[in-house]
Computed example of a mutant assay.
Amino acid sequence: MSTWAFDFTDKKIVITGGSRGLGLEMARAFSLLGADVAIASRKLAACEDAAAALTAETGSTVRPYALQVADWDQCTDFAQTVWHDMGGVDVLVNNAGSSPLYDSISGISEELYDKVIGLNLKGPFRLSALLGEKMVEAGGGAIVNISSIASLHPKPETVPYSAAKAGLNATTTALAHAYGPSVRVNAVVPGTFLTDVSRHWDHAAFAKRAQTFAAQRGGDPEEIVGAVLYLASSLASYTTGALLTVDGGAPD
């Protein structure tokens, strides 16, 4: 091991869902540490704006891409394109995800169910399969999946999402064995983070619930960064197939 410091100089990093929220904070951190970063989401304009702002702030190259992660063929094309554009990929962060609301479990439509599974499980699998194989051929790399505490403690209001993220956990373990020893595959399991989505919450109700957390608050988006950097770095050289929970000590 050459250093105890995080150094991603000239490393090629791909982050889905990288234009806002947790993904944007990850992109900022990698960029500040010298990486060449690609961010992708379904809204190209948002990625273009975020990439321009990060490039101006950090001085590192940030590339914007449009990608519907739930679309199998788009994932196939994106994996080929981003590998070619960047001259390889060292780290893939499967961050894109969503948990839509629904009125009742029986009222969940097939369209909603398929969308949730596609975005949170199918797409990350496809990107990991394609880029993971290329990383093995190139001699190494790391994949970091962003799961959710809902995968470990499912609730009635998160049935499709919990199922998808539980599947992502299983995929993480399986791919760690498939692509080891040269490519490490791990997952971060976040709890409640106060991103732009949290603006629509009942804040009084959340503040009461947060008192049951060991940290007694929700997480700030930048507080996910340390876990992701660790799993993506050489400091985690003996960490693979792991689920790293970052939830402020939330109860079950």
Rank of each mutant, 00 (worst) to 15 (best):
S151Y: 08
S151I: 10
L152G: 04
H153R: 15
H153M: 13
P154T: 04
K155I: 12
P156C: 05
P156I: 12
E157H: 14
E157A: 12
T158E: 08
T158V: 14
V159F: 07
P160L: 07
P160M: 09
Y161Q: 02
Y161G: 02
S162D: 05
S162Y: 03
S162P: 01
A163N: 13
A164P: 06
K165N: 04
A166E: 03
A166Q: 04
G167S: 12
G167V: 04
G167K: 04
L168A: 06
L168W: 01
N169I: 09
N169F: 01
N169P: 02
A170S: 15
T171E: 11
T171S: 12
T171Y: 08
T172Y: 04
T172D: 09
A174V: 12
A176F: 02
H177Y: 12
H177M: 11
Y179K: 01
G180H: 12
G180E: 03
G180N: 07
G180W: 12
P181E: 11
P181T: 12
S182C: 10
S182M: 10
V183N: 03
V183D: 03
V183I: 08
R184P: 01
R184S: 07
V185K: 00
V185Y: 01
N186C: 11
N186I: 02
A187W: 06
V188P: 02
P190E: 03
T192I: 13
T192D: 08
L194D: 03
T195W: 07
T195G: 11
D196A: 15
D196N: 13
D196P: 08
V197A: 15
V197W: 15
